[in-house]
Structure formats: C-alpha cells, structure tokens
C-alpha cells in the first residue's frame, strides 16, 4: 500500500470519526444530510459484499466493517435517537434519492467489467459514491450557520477521493495490471463535485471567517 492510499483511507476514516463525534458530543445532527448517509450505506453494502467471498487483508476487512457499522450508527441516531432525531433538518434535506440511484443503476448495468450480480452492484457502488455527497452539499447551501465540524467533515470526505487519485496515478505507474478506468473516471467526477466547496472552505479558513456557501 502506498502513502497516498493510506492517507486517503485515513482521511476517509477521520471524516467519519469527526461526524460521529459531532453528533454524539452536540447531541445534534443539524446540517447533516440523512439522504447522503443513507446513500453511503447503500454504497458500502453493495461494494463490500465481497467481505463474504474474498479475503484481502485484515486491514481491508476491519476498515470495511468500520465504514459499515459507523454509517449505520449515524443513520440509526438520525432516525431513531430520541434527542438527535429532533435536530434533523428534515424540511431542508429534500434531494430525491431516485435522481441519483436510478441513473447510477442504469449506468452500472450498461458499463461494467462483467455482467454478474456482484460486479454490477460493485460498479453501481462506484458510480453512486461519486454523487452521494450531492444531498449534503445542497443542504449545506441551505444552512445559514455551518458549524466547523460539519465543514471539516465534508472537507475530509472530499479530500479522501482526491488522495485516491494520487494513489491511482502511483499505481498506474508502478503496477502493470492496474487499469481501472471506470473507477478512475468516477473518482475524478467525485472530486470535481467538491471543488466549489473546497474553494469556499479554504477561503473561509484563510480569512478566519465562518464557512458559508452562496446559494
């Protein structure tokens, strides 16, 4: 494993830890999109089906389980925790799942490495991950007072795929049999989606101002 991949994984892990801490410490999920969290749950379930069929490494297995358990914990808190669920911005979090899920499903059926259930679901998870942040970004735009932890969460989540791109460049150059075009294109799309957010995040950080996204 190269340093970019490890940094990407750690950033991804850190983003989830930040989110868990924020919700748990403040007893509030204000500014967090349940739709994005549920889309990530779908992404992880579809991608990590190979937990049952293919052992890669202890690291790999443990990380997959952490991502699954933490995402379902967040969803559980946002839906059912008696204090936290009240703080969910239900009226603002209006993005429609089907606008993201259906195109990704069609694309996965058409563009995949192999037409098998496992492979199509895996490819679907790659496409869906690229766009799953959109409900969260829309919600952030509608939130007047974005708290620091929510901003940091989205920043870390965006950084993770950007670091993966460096990892892919590195692997492309060092590993002969490593040509994952579908993954690369999706990862680049995923990172591009964050560019606007990155711009305002860095600007607010440099000017020492509170983060806000223009509507």
């Amino acid at each position: 494993m190269n340093v970019f991949r490890l940094a990407g994984d750690m950033t991804h892990l850190l983003s989830i830890i930040v989110l868990l801490l924020k919700i748990n410490a403040t007893r509030s999920c204000r500014g967090i999109s349940l739709k994005t969290q549920e889309l990530y749950a779908v992404v992880f379930v579809c991608r990590y089906l190979d937990l049952f069929t293919n052992f890669i490494s202890l690291y790999n297995t443990v990380m997959k389980i952490i991502f699954l358990v933490s995402t379902f914990t967040i969803i559980y808190w946002m839906r059912f925790h008696k204090v936290i669920r009240v703080t969910y911005d239900r009226e603002q979090d209006t993005f429609r799942y089907q606008f993201l899920v259906l195109p990704c499903l069609v694309l996965a059926l058409l563009l995949n490495n192999e037409f098998t259930a496992m492979e199509v679901l895996w490819t679907f998870s790659i496409y869906l991950e690229a766009v799953a942040i959109l409900p969260q970004l829309v919600l952030l735009q509608r939130t007047n007072n974005i708290d620091n932890l929510t901003g940091n969460y989205v920043f870390l989540l965006g950084s993770y795929r950007a670091l993966y791109i460096l990892n892919w460049v590195y692997r492309f150059m060092t590993e002969k049999h490593y040509r994952q075009y579908l993954v690369w294109i999706s990862g680049i799309v995923q990172t591009i989606i964050y560019i606007d957010f990155f711009y305002y995040y860095i600007k607010s950080w440099r000017n020492n101002e509170k983060l806000s996204l223009p509507a």
Partner: peptide
Amino acid sequence: VQEKILKDEL
C-alpha cells in the same frame, strides 16, 4: 474490455 480487476481498495 478491462482485465479482471484487483479489488483491494475501499
């Protein structure tokens, strides 16, 4: 068509 790809990433 791609080769059978290595799925060791998360």
